[in-house]
Amino acid sequence: MEQQEVKTPEAVAMLDMLKAVPQQGKFMFGHHDDPVYGIGWDGDSARSDVKSVCGDYPAVMSFDLGRIEIYGDKNLDNVSTDRIRQEVVAQYERGGMVSFSWHADNPLTGKDSWDVSDSTVVKSILPGGANHDKFMGWLDKIADYLNSIQTADGTKVPVLFRPWHEHTGSWFWWGQNLCSTEDYKALWKMTYDRMQEKGATQLIYAYSPGTEPKDSTEYLERYPGDEIVDLIGVDAYQYDKDTFGQNLENALTIMTQVSKAHGKAMAVTETGYETIPDSVWWTGTLLPAIEKYPISYVLVWRNARERENHYYAPYPGQVSAADFVRFYEHPKTVFAEDMKQFEKKK
């Protein structure tokens, strides 16, 4: 039997780049759904709230795969799969990177990811479970979609895949109190194995708990293994100033130890302060919390167009916009135009 390719050359190059950025004392800036909608606009071509403020696109963009396995032509945020595909290719061609999260619906109840009414969901989709075949069909649809994201010459675009995130909390059906450690790891392995079987070898895998773990043992309690995971992350949001910086630094201290011990890249896979009411949040709170740590990137959540006051990046005129420009100009931050320095020589 022919040996299965573990990663495409493009995925290997992307992983090398993720490691090269912090080695130069820098980190990339990212924003979820950046080019597909923003404050007061939806679907415009070549637009971005971040670019409108600082003149450049983020170096990292993320999108969500949720409900693509159900609808086929759009995701849970009502963005067309064709548009996402187009933007992923465009971001890759400008030298940037894309990450995908997957807020998968609850396959047992038919409700969303946040439905935690039943603690047997993960068990039900593992081999032998009542929903196993249904779920494998979902995985196949996700793999087919990711495989369809290709450049004009047919190269599969490498992307970071970040399933089963924030599992150290219990707000998703795969969370801490909703499944055993053994079942959570089995879910990860089943996901990885199916993607490999489907030839989705352009994926880089991210493991991203919340800030709940108090030490590296807790951080790694549900870690699916070095042979699967490429990048370790943390999802950390600000709700009040006193605890945010401390929680994030605690997580980054733990992750730095784990990153060194396991040889993995590390990142702040999701963060932000809803509506960014603090005019100097970027250089006064976020930057001081992360600049000492060897992170590949920091990514803030989306600027919703269908929910008022649900945004995490500035837009023109927003109270933190001027400070964001200072953050953009800081020698440590990397945006799309800066990515040229990390391009692999072909």
Rank of each mutant, 00 (worst) to 15 (best):
I142D: 02
L178I: 09
S216G: 03
V229H: 12
Y184S: 07
I142Q: 03
E166S: 05
K156G: 05
T191Y: 13
Q196W: 11
D240S: 13
G175H: 01
S180F: 09
P209L: 11
L178F: 02
S170W: 10
R222V: 06
G210R: 04
T181Q: 05
A186S: 11
E182Q: 08
W164V: 13
D193M: 05
I204V: 15
P224I: 08
K185H: 10
K189L: 02
Q150L: 00
C179V: 00
D193Y: 13
I142A: 06
A143R: 05
H165Y: 12
W174H: 09
L146G: 03
K189A: 08
K189D: 03
G225L: 08
T181P: 00
T243S: 11
D193G: 10
L160A: 03
E218G: 14
Q176V: 07
C179E: 03
G199I: 01
Y184W: 14
H165M: 02
Q176W: 13
S208R: 00
Q202P: 11
T201C: 07
T181D: 15
L231F: 12
T243L: 10
L146P: 06
I228N: 06
E182V: 12
A186P: 03
G225A: 09
L178K: 06
Q196I: 08
L187H: 05
Q176M: 12
G169N: 10
M195C: 04
Y237M: 02
T155V: 11
E227K: 09
E221D: 14
D215R: 12
G210F: 00
G154E: 11
G169F: 13
W173S: 01
L220T: 05
T181R: 09
K141L: 15
T211G: 05
F172Q: 07
Y207A: 01
W174S: 06
D144T: 15
C179R: 00
I149D: 04
E212Y: 13
Y237K: 09
E227T: 15
T155S: 12
T191D: 13
C179T: 03
P163A: 09
D153V: 03
S170T: 14
T151D: 07
R194I: 01
L178A: 07
E221W: 04
S170D: 15
T201D: 14
E166L: 07
W164D: 07
D240Y: 10
D240C: 08
I204G: 05
T217I: 10
Y145L: 02
F244A: 10
G210W: 00
V234M: 08
W173A: 00
E227C: 07
D242E: 13
W174Y: 08
I204W: 01
K241S: 14
D140G: 13
A206C: 15
V159D: 01
K198P: 01
G169S: 06
W171V: 08
R162A: 06
Y219L: 11
T217K: 14
T155H: 15
K198T: 14
G233D: 06
G210D: 14
D226N: 12
K141W: 15
D230F: 02
L160S: 09
D183A: 10
D153F: 10
Q196Y: 10
D230I: 10
G175P: 00
C179W: 04
E227I: 07
D240E: 14
T201H: 11
L231A: 08
F244T: 02
T191W: 13
F172S: 10
V157D: 01
M195P: 09
I232W: 04
